[in-house]
């Protein structure tokens, strides 16, 4: 495990809340995913994706962003 998963999830949700500038969930997810790509060490992104796979409950925005991260890999 890298950075504690709880903290990563908290951070991702926080980013999601702050980039929720549009009512279009795709736009929000894209901005969130973009932020994670630009500023997070890839190990942290992987950890977040793994948590999502393990069924941790995430907001729709973070869930969608995680899906985008996975598909762009």
């Amino acid at each position: 495990m890298t950075v504690s998963v709880d903290k990563l999830i908290r951070m991702a949700e926080q980013i999601g809340a702050n980039v929720s500038i549009s009512t279009d969930p795709d736009i929000v997810a894209e901005r969130l995913a973009d932020h994670l790509r630009r500023f997070w060490d890839p190990r942290m992104r992987e950890e977040l994706c793994r948590a999502a796979d393990q069924g941790v409950v995430l907001s729709p925005a973070v869930t969608a962003a995680v899906a985008m991260l996975k598909s762009s890999k």
Binding site: M1, T2, V3, S4, D41, P42, R43, M44
Partner: peptide, 18 residues
């Protein structure tokens, strides 16, 4: 080509042993 750890990430990763 990928970003590395920020200071708080370094600390977290140190605690998790990585």
């Amino acid at each position: 080509s990928e970003p590395g750890y920020r200071i708080p990430n370094m600390f977290d990763a140190a605690i998790s042993g990585e």
